[in-house]
Design a protein around this nucleic acid. Structure first.
Length: 541
DNA sequence: TGCCAGTCAATAGC
DNA sequence: GCTATTGACTGGCA
């Protein structure tokens, strides 16, 4: 049925909405829109025909919106079944600060946390293998450490230009860590230098592995070969039918035939692949990558937040969504970059993966200030005192004397205990962090709107009938539900997107009726694994 | 101006 | 403490 303004009203004669209106599961809402529910809950005689109609519409849409708790938990769409309990207004949780692209951080992290990393790669294999529980270390770096980061930034000429930190600059770190770390620069692939156009054809299995060869000096190539033997092969075969003989990779690596890392760094190879060679279309099997990443994060007990921040420069929620609901490569646009970073990380030798994870440069002060200002525009409640969740260090730079960096370190517990200095710094930074926490607590967070049960049910019901209601209809809906027009608009926008984003929705035709589950839960039983339908999938109207 | 992709970040639930 | 969900924001595009 095509939902129109007329038939919304036409269905208002149905009265089963009474159950809905008196639902015990309609959560008291702190939102301004909660008055709508109150209206219909306590003064049914006064409720508008529009709301009644919407409620009836839901009841008539297959019984998916019963107020029965079991129905809510077991069959409803997540967006409907949520919020049976009161909404917590606690500020206990903090969120990652705005993120930025990461520089190749492994060298720095190794300096502090991985003193052995430059000796023998195999040691890292031992250290990083197995189930490793992570821990966090807040570090305040001294200037030597910062200086050592200089050559890292050099790979980010656009966003992190740092004078005197060009490619050739040698830092105490680079000189001290030897060839391995000098050759680690391609970790910039995790950062903006890895930004490629959506049509870039770079990550063929060949180029991908060759670029990794460039990360290691010849002395480490044996290790690389071993590492790739464990991980690279599967990734090759994961690349949407682009099979490449693994031995050819290893061969080229061992012989150091192609150093695409340099090509990438200097902007030549990024969009071209191997000059003169067969340039295969870059196509990452996002589903496979997501599964691999998920497995690796579990394997090493790496929190999503850490991986998202360190490797992807994304938030935890974004990563979670990408891992659970990867879009097909062909449907990705700029989002391909995020999967490229995952893909690249998967190709790293294990010790290098861990190394990259161990340190995060959260945000340079200027960038953070810019975003804070931007955020203040968007969220007036967010003041310029926005802080990061990590320690802040001042980075000496002739061009940017006020340049500050926040450094957050994550270390596998097997590494960390020996470094007393780190502990000292960590405690100092912990104190600092506590201070900031107090500052933060004085800044009211923007409270997130959570639809009331009625609002959500109504919106979902309408969406099921009409995924793209007219502007006029959205206005009516917003008025009747006591929501902002932009909120209603956003709802339909998000719903359309999250419906069709999911793999299975289009390919398998799974509908909303069969895949409703408890929200916010790790309900794997109702979660359709990647490659089929997502549990939060809407059906197509 | 509206739509969309990508993402943030609040927060519920485990 | 961690992950999943989801309302909202930004920038690009037609």
């Amino acid at each position: 049925m095509e939902l129109t303004m007329e038939n919304i009203h036409s269905v208002s004669s149905h009265s089963q909405v009474g159950d809905l209106m008196s639902s015990h599961h309609a959560r008291p809402s702190p939102s301004p829109s909660s008055n709508t529910r109150n209206l219909v809950s306590h003064a049914p005689g006064a409720r508008s025909a529009m709301v009644t109609g919407m409620g009836s519409l839901m009841d008539g849409s297959g019984g998916d919106y019963r107020t029965d708790p079991s129905g809510l938990s077991g069959h409803l769409h997540p967006s409907i079944s949520m919020c049976e309990n009161g909404m917590s207004l606690s500020n206990t949780y903090t969120t990652l600060t705005p993120l930025q692209h990461l520089p190749p951080i492994s060298t720095v992290s190794d300096k502090f946390h991985h003193p052995h990393s430059h000796h023998h790669a195999a040691a890292h294999q031992r250290l990083s293998a197995g189930n490793v529980s992570g821990s966090f270390t807040l570090m305040r770096e001294d200037h030597r450490g910062l200086a050592s980061m200089g050559n890292l930034y050099s790979h980010y000429p656009k966003e992190m230009s740092v004078s005197g930190m060009g490619h050739g600059s040698l830092s105490p770190l680079s000189s001290g860590l030897g060839s391995l770390h000098n050759s680690q620069q391609p970790l910039s692939a995790y950062g903006p230098s890895a930004h490629l156009s959506a049509e870039t054809k770079m990550i063929s299995p060949v180029t991908g592995f060759e670029s990794h060869a460039s990360m290691l000096s010849r002395s480490d190539q044996d290790h690389l070969a071993r590492s790739l033997g464990g991980h690279g092969h599967s990734m090759i075969s994961n690349l949407n039918g682009m099979h490449h003989h693994p031995h050819s990779h290893l061969h080229s690596q061992v012989n150091g035939a192609v150093m695409l890392g340099d090509r990438d760094r200097h902007g030549h190879g990024a969009g071209q692949g191997v000059a003169g060679s067969n340039v295969q279309a870059e196509e990452i099997n996002t589903k496979e990558v997501a599964q691999r990443i998920t497995a690796e994060l579990k394997r090493y007990s790496i929190p999503q937040a850490i991986f998202a921040q360190r490797i992807l420069s994304r938030s935890q929620g974004t990563l979670s969504d990408l891992l659970r609901n990867p879009k097909p490569w062909s449907k990705l646009k700029s989002g391909r970059e995020t999967f490229r970073r995952m893909w690249k990380w998967l190709q790293e030798p294990e010790f290098q993966r861990m190394s990259a994870l161990r340190l995060a440069v959260v945000r340079p002060g200027r960038e953070r200030a810019r975003l804070t200002a931007h955020k203040a525009r968007s969220h007036p409640s967010v003041q310029a005192s926005t802080t990061t969740s990590s320690s802040t260090v001042r980075r000496p730079s002739a061009n940017s004397p006020g340049f500050t960096w926040s450094v957050l370190l994550w270390r596998p517990p097997s590494h960390g205990a020996a470094l007393g200095l780190m502990e000292e710094n960590r405690s100092a930074c912990k104190r600092k962090e506590e201070d900031r926490g107090r500052e933060r607590s004085q800044v009211p967070k923007k409270q997130r709107l959570v639809f009331t049960d009625l609002q959500r049910r109504t919106l979902v019901a309408i969406f099921r009938e009409n995924r793209r209601p007219s502007k006029e209809m959205q206005i009516t809906i917003s008025q009747q539900l006591g929501l902002e027009l932009t909120t209603v608009s956003n709802f339909f926008m998000n719903s359309r997107r999250r419906c069709t984003d999911r793999w299975g929705t289009e390919e398998l035709g799974h509908g909303m009726h069969g895949h409703m589950h408890t929200p916010h839960g790790n309900n794997n039983n109702s979660q359709i694994q990647a490659g089929t339908a997502s549990a939060s999938t809407f059906s197509k109207a």
